[in-house]
Design a protein around this nucleic acid. Structure first.
Ligand SMILES: [Mg+2]
Ligand SMILES: [Mg+2]
Length: 424
DNA sequence: CCGTTCACG
DNA sequence: ACGTACGTGAACGGA
């Protein structure tokens, strides 16, 4: 009753900002879709998860002892403060970079010290294993409910770009990049006798950039049959696609990823392990090959500066007060946020539209298949054996046709008896 | 409660 | 309120 009083003013606020379609067609219909996913949850193989934890706990324990032995005295390896003292005061290793509170001990800094002392390799391994044990072992186990499933909360109003987030637990950052971590994905399994269908967008942010910037080279690259990074490298380094080296491809790939974040020459140089001068040359070559990407970025920042906010293609706004800060660094950070918001935000809008559409199609066809997870550009469904074909078809349809851009939205589909299998 | 670190897209 | 790549959430240590 009291809530009814909110409808007129909130409705007017939506109208005034042109947000009515985004709300009516995407955000509001998405609420029950996410609610069902939370309620359904995802099944976890608890026994298997526990076995992973056991192995990791043993290794962490051993590494912990070795590290303290190499330090020459007991200390809390998990304490960055104590570790700083050991590395930079006692062992005399060269500090690489600073944080607010002292010298950094992050993995990138440690990696630069590799070979200078045997403690470094042990620490890197310790960090990796301890992360897996604590965050994805113990903590995930504690979230498994009496029904053998994990029920996260999917936040619709947290991320400033319009993305979803997941908490208690976060199911958006389950490991995949290392084989060791990827084992945790195997713990996520479908209902007995059913299968997982995983569908994810191929390069959605780069496609969004191609669309927004209307860059002919980038659009062409997506319409050719070439691998996108190879096609990009060919243009950047002015060689035939067939002559692109692996090193050139990986440089092109790194730029493409950094693009949506407003990466500069320094950032590129750090990630490529080349000099800032070389990185600067590569970045210049990129923007010469794709000039409209450059002008899109510039225009986006300028518009945001004037209005105080960015807007996605669907009208979603993000205020960026940092753009009028008197502090140069703060202002620069604001510029990168402005560049990124329209890109990450449009990809999120498209993905949400796909979720709503997919849910409607599952309902329309009275399928038992159900959405159990989503991760930014990926959906995971559990599917009974007799619905494989139908589920594939509507998932592809919903995602492929969620939005019409000037480049196709390509979707990868795969099946598995666990989350890891269905991603490989 | 903050800072650091690190997992993901 | 920050060096330099955006967006999250979580574990841990320490004040
Ligand atoms: Mg929960
Ligand atoms: Mg993808």
């Amino acid at each position: 009753a009291a809530v009814a009083l909110l409808v007129p003013p909130l409705g007017q606020a939506l109208e005034a900002r042109g947000l009515r379609p985004l709300y009516d067609d995407i955000e509001r219909p998405l609420v029950p879709v996410l609610a069902r996913m939370e309620k359904v949850g995802v099944r976890v193989d608890e026994t298997y998860l526990r076995s992973l934890v056991t192995g990791l706990t043993e290794e962490v324990h051993a590494l912990d002892a070795e590290i303290q032995e190499l330090a020459g005295h007991p200390f809390l390896v998990n304490s960055t403060k104590q570790l700083r003292t050991v590395l930079f005061d006692e062992l005399g290793l060269q500090p690489q970079k600073k944080t607010k509170t002292g010298f950094s001990t992050d993995a990138a800094s440690l990696a630069k010290l590799a070979g200078q002392h045997p403690i470094i390799d042990k620490l890197l391994r310790y960090r990796e294993v301890e992360k897996l044990r604590s965050t994805y072992g113990e903590s995930l186990l504690a979230e498994v409910g009496a029904d053998g499933r994990i029920h996260a909360t999917f936040q619709q109003t947290v991320a400033r770009t319009g993305r979803l987030s997941s908490d208690r637990p976060n199911l958006h950052n389950i490991p995949i990049r290392t084989e060791e971590g990827r084992r945790f994905r195997r713990a996520f399994v479908p209902r007995e006798g059913w299968s997982f269908l995983v569908a994810d967008y191929n390069q959605i942010e780069l496609r969004v950039i191609a669309h927004l910037a209307e860059d002919p080279g980038l659009i062409d690259a997506f319409e050719s049959d070439l691998d996108i990074h190879t096609a990009t490298a060919a243009r950047v380094f002015s060689v035939d696609a067939g002559a692109v080296t692996l090193a050139q491809r990986s440089k092109a790939k790194m730029i493409s990823y950094g693009l949506a974040y407003g990466m500069e020459a320094y950032g590129l140089s750090q990630r490529l392990g080349v000099s800032v001068d070389e990185a600067s040359l590569i970045l210049t070559a990129y923007f010469e090959a794709f000039p409209k990407v450059k002008s899109y970025m510039d225009t986006t920042v300028e518009e945001a500066r004037q209005r105080g906010y960015t807007e996605t293609l669907f009208g979603r706004r993000r205020l960026i007060p940092e753009l009028s800060s008197s502090n140069y660094r703060v202002r620069q950070a604001g510029e990168r946020q402005a560049m990124n918001a329209g890109i990450q935000g449009l990809a999120a809008d498209i993905f949400k539209a796909a979720l709503v559409k997919l849910d409607a199609l599952l309902e329309r066809d009275r399928l038992e298949s159900r959405l159990v997870l989503q991760v930014h550009d990926e959906v995971i469904l559990e599917v009974p054996p007799d619905e494989n074909a139908a589920a594939s078809e509507i998932t592809l349809d919903a995602m492929h046709n969620a939005c019409r851009l000037c480049v196709p939205l390509e979707v990868n589909l795969s099946w598995g008896t666990n989350w890891a299998e269905a991603k490989s």
